[in-house]
């Protein structure tokens, strides 16, 4: 231990050579803690990030429900369906919520860069990766909570006559929650990359938001593949949102479709590695 001796009065006592406490997981945990504390202290944001998806769920299912039913019975099904459109839409809304949160992921990054708080992280003896990992972990937890709440409310709606089968029960719901969070974390890479490269909230918002709707509507998130126009069907096969939506829809309507679930995780992993790879590159380039 190196200590400075000979200073009778001290402004603050020295611990400069204090025993190291905690490793990389502590670092990540601290960053996550900070992000979650901030989140809980902006209850308005928290409320609306849940409120909006629920509005969408009700609005879409009411507006398009009858169209869907007649299209389904006349088209791909032939007989009246044993479930409502809301059951088809539910996975789409969970992925949409995750995308929405993911679009906002970069905002915090810009705020920290602007305020100078990021310098506090960078000048501390921690891994730079811990900062990004901690933020993503906090994002993932938030997205899982959002998906969980949406599924929970949907479950409550079944008590009021809404026909949502929940074919795989609680286990399936947990799987959907995981899928949604994983998808959201993967998609966060885009928002964070733009945030780190432009250091500008508006740009971050524009890029992320302008991709959100094409990704959602050119996928099977809103309607089953059979009801989509041919060119959208083609695009939807390369859209990771489709794989996520198909797996989640199977979990709600039919059962454990392990091929779909496997495909979803592969698609999410590929998507996530590319986007977060870009984010990591942008993050490492800070101060270079």
């Amino acid at each position: 231990m190196v200590t400075d001796v000979g200073h009778a009065q001290r402004v603050i006592r020295p611990t400069r050579d204090a025993e190291a406490s905690g490793g990389v997981f502590t670092e990540i945990g601290l960053v996550t803690w900070r992000s979650l504390v901030k989140l809980t202290r902006t209850p308005v944001l928290l409320f609306f990030s849940l409120f909006m998806p629920l509005i969408w769920l009700v609005m879409f299912s009411q507006t398009f429900g009858t169209v869907f039913s007649s299209a389904a019975s006349g088209g791909f099904s032939g007989t009246p369906l044993p479930y409502d459109y809301v059951a088809v839409l539910l996975p789409g809304i969970t992925v949409m919520t995750a995308i929405q949160s993911a679009s906002q992921s970069g905002f915090g990054m810009v705020a920290d860069l602007e305020s100078g708080f990021m310098d506090k992280f960078f000048v501390a003896p921690i891994h730079r990766g811990s900062v990004l990992a901690g933020k993503l972990l906090a994002d993932g937890l938030r997205m899982a909570a959002q998906a969980g709440i949406i599924l929970g409310i949907a479950a409550i709606l079944t008590l009021f006559g809404w026909r949502i089968p929940f074919a795989t029960g609680v286990v399936g719901a947990v799987l959907i929650t995981l899928l949604a969070a994983a998808f959201g974390v993967a998609f966060s890479g885009l928002s964070n990359t733009v945030a780190l490269r432009t250091k500008n909230t508006e740009s971050t918002m524009m890029v992320s938001f302008s991709l959100t709707f094409p990704l959602l509507f050119l996928s099977t998130a809103m309607l089953p593949k059979a009801l989509l126009p041919a060119w959208v069907q083609t695009f939807s096969t390369v859209n990771p949102v489709s794989y996520m939506a198909d797996a989640a829809r199977a979990l709600i309507l039919t059962g454990f479709d392990w091929t779909a679930i496997g495909n979803a995780f592969v698609a999410i992993a590929a998507f996530g590695i590319v986007l977060n790879g870009l984010a990591i590159m942008a993050f490492r380039a800070q101060g270079k």
Binding site: T15, A18, E19, A20, S21, G22, T26, E27, L30, W33, R34, K120, F121, A124, P125, I126
Partner: peptide
């Protein structure tokens, strides 16, 4: 507190 912990000081 957060900054102190980021310097790996015991709680």
């Amino acid at each position: 507190w957060l900054i102190g912990r980021l310097y790996h000081m015991p709680n």
